[in-house]
Design a protein around this nucleic acid. Structure first.
Lengths: 151, 151
DNA sequence: CGACGATGGTTGACTAGGAAATCAAATTGA
DNA sequence: TCAATTTGATTTCCTAGTCAACCATCGTCG
């Protein structure tokens, strides 16, 4: 007697991904209206309220490669939302920082993020939301997850 | 007095994505050892135990475009795991079906999926896992999510 | 002091997906 | 019946990542 092959839907990971994708796609659509992608938002938010920071540090924080940060930064520079300057101390190094426009945009996008999150989890009671958050954070901690999730 | 701009980490969606990405990446690595991607696994599992099915139906089920299915199928055909045949009834239509090798591989990959899921959620008690699943399914139902989540 | 390995960043080749144009076959209707 | 529309699938072009090769500069040590 052979065990049946498990369904895709029999895994918690399946439902996790399903819900996660929908939340992100809804958020991506809202951000899209504002002319930025999710990755761009993450970079903007990462730079917000901090002194200029090295691309390599951003790469570590966001869990992307340096090459990805170079290109991501290129796009945001083209949109005049961030600035790239040569480091004073190190001829190889660069720093990334928000422009005034970028700085002004972050609160607007943060508001979108707040609303997206609220809308999606409105179906849960406060107690359920709390429980959900606790479980997610426990899984994150246990799995030693740290970098900002992009895709 | 201005409200502070919310942190990335202040959103449930952030933690959801974080955990979801780690589960998927761990699974992707395991599948990678077996020579397939997550999307390929989803397609293989979708074809398993069914009569030959149209690419367009697969696209709907998996939530990918038809173009994506064409290419995904191309890759799996190159690996001799699936077969594409012209429909008898309709000169435009094709059907996709597992080859013998594909059929034999699915249970192996399903086992990987089972183990990946079990390992990741081992940190939760049965009651917690149950609660987590219930919440995810409620969110999925409420958000009218149906297609298989790929990325 | 000067060569040489390490480090910071960029670039090229590749992968995987989406949107829209395209092609061929089927269906519809005047 | 046959022209027009619709439908199934593929293809082209674009976006956004990775990996690995590369370039320049820094720091070290002989």
């Amino acid at each position: 007697m052979k065990a049946p092959v498990s369904e895709l839907t029999s895994h918690l990971g399946f439902w996790l991904r399903m819900v996660s994708n929908h939340v992100s796609q809804a958020f991506a659509a809202k951000l899209g209206d504002a002319g930025v992608t999710v990755a761009e938002w993450c970079l903007l938010r990462t730079l917000y309220g901090k002194p200029p920071i090295a691309p390599s540090a951003v790469a570590d924080e966001m869990g992307l490669t340096r090459g990805a940060i170079t290109r991501l930064a290129d796009r945001l520079i083209a949109k005049a939302l961030i600035r790239r300057d040569a480091s004073v101390h190190d001829g190889r190094a660069q720093t990334l920082a928000l422009t005034e426009q970028g700085d002004a945009l972050v609160p607007v996008l943060a508001e979108l993020a707040d609303r997206n999150d609220a809308a999606f989890f409105a179906g849960l009671s406060p107690a359920e939301r709390d429980s959900f958050e606790r479980l997610l954070k426990r899984l994150a901690e246990r799995g030693e997850m740290s970098s900002i999730p992009i895709d």
